[in-house]
Amino acid sequence: MLKANIYVTLKNGVLDPQGEAVKKSLKILDFGQVNQVRIGKFIEVWLESRDQAAAIKELEEMSDKLLANPVIEDYRVEIVEVNQS
């Protein structure tokens, strides 16, 4: 079985109201060095597969189709754990 981590992040230039609000909060908490916060999504997917190359291809297809919206988001896929049992 394979496990994948998918990181979905807002594209550069797309305003992130949540990140802005969190940044303000961090400033209020005296973390004065913070100058930007961007919030994205972290998705874990477990696959019944042992073929990493094929899995990555499929995960990218999933991301393009559903997990990320290409108008506002980028994504990155990584396989982190291979259980050989």
Binding site: V14, L15, D16, P17, Q18, A21, N69, V71, I72
Partner: peptide, 17 residues
């Protein structure tokens, strides 16, 4: 309709949250 691509663009959270 935006997600389906019948209209262009996407929605973000309201700027006020």
């Amino acid at each position: 309709l935006l997600e389906a691509g019948l209209l262009p663009g996407a929605m973000l959270r309201n700027s006020s949250l």
